[in-house]
């Protein structure tokens, strides 16, 4: 009788104790949009923008639970542009918050703005570039700001006036690994 009672108690306690930690690590994808307004008389038009992870609610809501942040992906989309705008090269540079330490430099030769107004351009980085960003993000409590520079080089358009404009969006996706 005592043995049966002991076994039942152990089973019940085991069930309760094993149930205490039902959670496991989970991951949230943080999407960061950055809009650019490039305009000027050429030949190059450029804009620099600064942004920080704490501009985004998903980061702020989970900042105390973040174990790791990893760069995942990026894309470019044209929102609006001078008619027929094209350029010899579209360059996207991402720097650490100091504006000097380069994390990646992506270039697209023979850029035609309208090609990416209905079809996002997938920005694929090298493994080394991804590792550089991830190294910077490994101290995200301090290193959570970036400087992004978008440049269209040697721009041309169908406009008779030598004035060019490009409104564009860059999206970055990062993965937040969260403690249970």
């Amino acid at each position: 009788m005592k043995r049966l009672l002991a076994i039942s108690t152990v089973l019940t306690l085991s069930l309760l104790l094993n149930s205490c930690d039902p959670f496991e690590e989970y991951f949230i994808n943080l999407k960061m949009d950055q809009q650019f307004q490039l305009y000027g008389i050429g030949p190059n038009i450029t804009q620099q923008t600064n942004f920080c992870l704490n501009n985004y609610d998903d980061y702020n809501d989970n900042v105390d639970k973040i174990e790791q942040i990893k760069y995942v992906d990026a894309a470019y989309l044209t929102i609006n542009a001078s008619e027929g705008l094209n350029s010899d090269n579209l360059s996207l540079k991402l720097y650490e918050s100091d504006g000097n330490t380069l994390l990646f430099d992506y270039n697209l030769p023979s850029f035609v703005a309208s090609d990416y107004s209905n079809k996002a351009l997938h920005i694929q980085l090298t493994q080394t570039e991804k590792e550089r960003i991830n190294q910077y993000l490994s101290h995200h409590q301090q290193n959570n700001c970036f400087v992004a520079v978008l440049t269209a080089e040697n721009v041309r358009s169908n406009n008779s006036l030598p004035y060019f404009s490009l409104q564009a969006k860059i999206e970055f996706v990062a993965e937040l690994k969260l403690k249970p």
Binding site: L15, F23, E24, N29, K119, A120, H122, V173, L178
Partner: peptide, 19 residues
């Protein structure tokens, strides 16, 4: 990645089991 940019799906509760 869709034509208009990234589409991000939500995470779940991250549960191994449910007591």
């Amino acid at each position: 990645l869709s034509n208009t940019g990234f589409v991000v799906y939500p995470s779940g509760l991250g549960l191994k089991n449910i007591p």
